[in-house]
Amino acid sequence: MSEPIILFDKVNKWYGNNFHVLRDIDLSVAKGERIVICGPSGSGKSTLIRCINRLEEHQQGHLVVDGTELSDDVKAIEKVRKEVGMVFQQFNLFPHLTVLENLTLAPMWVGKLPKKEAEERAMQQLKRVQISEQAGKYPLQLSGGQQQRVAIARALCLTPKIMLFDEPTSALDPEMINEVLDVMIELAGQGITMLCVTHEMGFARSVADRVIFMDQGQIVEQNTPEQFFANPQNERTRDFLSKIIAH
């Protein structure tokens, strides 16, 4: 097996002095692998993926992303963030900029692309998420599903090797969930490494290579989707699955 693109080695993190949010996390992600992370609220799944681009810092253990070990070193953080795109639950688009400006901001200022080139690249990505006709609008003039697709396009504009999704459909109206999932499924077919925190089990079944279940800061169980859903090993996993699939 080739070198993992993300490697967690006994990673621990605390919020304050007492809240041990990540406990002895060991996780190795292969290049191109698509992983879905699920678990109850407060289990540390968001924190886990936010450590990968250093939105959160871990206090113990080692975390290596694409050959760079994450530490307080600003250069290392910059390097990792160039390779990692992220999509948030609340979209976090920049409301004072148009859709197109949201997409060209980083390529122009971080990637130092000329404006014209950045706009071309942005339009390509907007076409990909099927929203190019909204390029001149402001984010708040779009529906939630459209905003989230813009957010995905914005992350893709930096051509990342790894994409992190932090509950990308949890803030959406039910009617809009599928338009976002469709974009993510299309993306999953392109060989990009994906880590996705979600409770969309249909998505997990159809695209994930591996499903990880977390509880109380630990990785409780991980398996292929077939095995994970058909034959959960841990009692805690069974309990969780029965709750989210029952109704």
Partner: peptide, 27 residues
């Protein structure tokens, strides 16, 4: 300004001053 704005700017690789100038201060 919601914390998510700074986080989105960080994720995109904007430096502190770029983020302030382009994202945080205008709002």
């Amino acid at each position: 300004i919601p914390k998510g704005q700074q986080e989105a700017a960080d994720t995109l690789g904007l430096s502190y001053w770029q983020a302030q100038r382009k994202v945080i201060l205008p709002q």
